[in-house]
Simulated scan of single mutants.
Amino acid sequence: MSAPRLVVVHRDPETLAAAAAARLVTTVTDVQSTGAVPHVVLTGGSLGIRLLELLRDSPARAAVDWSRLHLWWGDERHLPSGHPDRNETQARDALLDHVDVDPALVHPVPDDADGTRTPERAAEEYAAELARHRRPGDGVAVPRFDVVLLGMGPDGHVASLFPEHPGLQADGTVTGVRGSPKPPPERVSLTFGALRAANEVWFVVGGEDKAPAAAMALRGAGERQVPAAGVEGTRRTLWLLDRAAAAQVPPALVRPASP
Rank of each mutant, 00 (worst) to 15 (best):
residue 119 P to W: 02
residue 143 P to S: 07
residue 186 E to C: 08
residue 162 F to I: 05
residue 181 P to A: 01
residue 158 V to P: 02
residue 162 F to S: 05
residue 159 A to R: 08
residue 179 G to S: 06
residue 157 H to Y: 13
residue 150 L to A: 08
residue 152 M to D: 10
residue 136 P to S: 09
residue 139 G to I: 11
residue 173 T to K: 03
residue 148 V to D: 02
residue 180 S to G: 09
residue 173 T to I: 05
residue 176 G to T: 09
residue 164 E to V: 02
residue 150 L to K: 14
residue 137 G to V: 07
residue 123 A to C: 06
residue 179 G to F: 07
residue 153 G to W: 04
residue 115 G to L: 13
residue 123 A to T: 11
residue 170 A to R: 02
residue 139 G to W: 09
residue 166 P to W: 01
residue 177 V to E: 02
residue 169 Q to V: 02
residue 147 V to E: 15
residue 160 S to D: 11
residue 166 P to V: 02
residue 132 R to D: 14
residue 171 D to N: 12
residue 168 L to Y: 00
residue 176 G to H: 09
residue 132 R to F: 06
residue 183 P to K: 03
residue 163 P to R: 03
residue 136 P to N: 09
residue 154 P to M: 06
residue 155 D to N: 11
residue 182 K to D: 04
residue 164 E to W: 10
residue 128 A to F: 02
residue 164 E to Y: 11
residue 167 G to M: 02
residue 139 G to T: 13
residue 174 V to M: 01
residue 188 V to G: 02
residue 132 R to N: 10
residue 166 P to Q: 01
residue 119 P to L: 01
residue 180 S to D: 03
residue 162 F to M: 08
residue 144 R to V: 12
residue 121 R to D: 14
residue 172 G to P: 11
residue 187 R to G: 04
residue 161 L to Y: 06
residue 160 S to E: 14
residue 170 A to T: 00
residue 142 V to S: 12
residue 148 V to W: 08
residue 172 G to K: 09
residue 141 A to V: 09
residue 154 P to L: 06
residue 188 V to H: 02
residue 171 D to W: 04
residue 171 D to K: 11
residue 174 V to G: 02
residue 156 G to I: 11
residue 159 A to D: 04
residue 167 G to Q: 03
residue 171 D to P: 10
residue 184 P to H: 00
residue 115 G to R: 14
residue 188 V to T: 11
residue 182 K to W: 00
residue 126 Y to L: 13
residue 137 G to I: 10
residue 153 G to V: 13
residue 188 V to W: 04
residue 155 D to C: 07
residue 176 G to F: 05
residue 121 R to S: 10
residue 143 P to V: 08
residue 125 E to L: 15
residue 119 P to C: 01
residue 149 L to N: 14
residue 117 R to M: 13
residue 169 Q to E: 15
residue 126 Y to V: 06
residue 186 E to L: 12
residue 140 V to Q: 09
residue 138 D to N: 13
residue 183 P to N: 05
residue 116 T to R: 15
residue 123 A to L: 11
residue 175 T to Q: 05
residue 124 E to I: 04
residue 148 V to F: 02
residue 122 A to W: 01
residue 178 R to P: 03
residue 124 E to L: 10
residue 122 A to C: 13
residue 116 T to D: 15
residue 173 T to M: 14
residue 116 T to L: 15
residue 169 Q to P: 01
residue 117 R to L: 15
residue 172 G to Q: 09
residue 135 R to F: 03
residue 154 P to S: 12
residue 149 L to A: 10
residue 141 A to G: 15
residue 123 A to G: 10
residue 181 P to F: 01
residue 173 T to G: 00
residue 169 Q to G: 13
residue 142 V to G: 05
residue 176 G to V: 03
residue 170 A to S: 14
residue 187 R to A: 00
residue 188 V to K: 01
residue 121 R to G: 07
residue 165 H to E: 06
residue 145 F to L: 14
residue 169 Q to A: 15
residue 161 L to E: 01
residue 118 T to P: 11
residue 182 K to H: 04
residue 114 D to T: 11
residue 144 R to L: 14
residue 178 R to W: 05
residue 136 P to A: 13
residue 164 E to R: 12
residue 178 R to S: 10
residue 140 V to D: 10
residue 161 L to A: 07
residue 140 V to R: 13
residue 181 P to H: 02
residue 188 V to N: 01
